[in-house]
Amino acid sequence: MNAGLVWVLVGLGFAVVTLQRRSLAVGLVTVQALVLAAVAFADARGPHDLLAAVALVVRGLGLAAFFLLVIARTRDPRLVRAIVPPLRRVALAIALALMLGWLIPSIGLVSRDAERGVLTLVACGLVLAATSRATVFQVLGVVLVENGLALAALELPGTSWLIEVGVAVDLTLVAVVAGVFHERIFTEFGAGDTDALRSLRD
């Protein structure tokens, strides 16, 4: 994958970290998955690689449709603000990405840019999940991490189709269960806001 595309994916990741509108964030995460799928199709050398590319497309579009449906059914009466302001979240993601880059000097992928891109996307996902209050954004954090790992799998020297297909299946399962929880949390508390989930403490 060329460096430009890698940094497009990273740019989309940072954009998701700054957003507060759920539907927009779902759109950007989907674009990210489709860019990955396009690269997978372009680099495909056999039926297994094609299967991995198809899995990326189905996963990306399927999750987008599912998340948009969930959002449409649970319109928040007010914007659920994140725990940390957007710019500070970006700073946190950059700091975590640099730390991961220092801890993991080489992943062994085909390109060095892809290695940096993978770690940055994982950092963006972790920061998004940790600093968001909105339930949908926390799940999008998991999706961002998985998109980063999908990039890594595409850039592996050997066959990576099993990782791509496996991630697609598992991510879909987790997202569906998260959707069920989100709807119940919305019904129970009137908003998809994890701030309401603070009663279990020791």
Binding site: G108, V122, A129, E146, L156, V167, A178
Partner: peptide, 22 residues
């Protein structure tokens, strides 16, 4: 919810390890 999000993120980190291993 806590279980779902925390363990999914944890398993994401483990998957990074698996990719590195591969």
């Amino acid at each position: 919810w806590k279980y779902l999000v925390l363990t999914s993120l944890g398993l994401g980190v483990a998957l990074l390890g698996i990719v590195l291993l591969a």
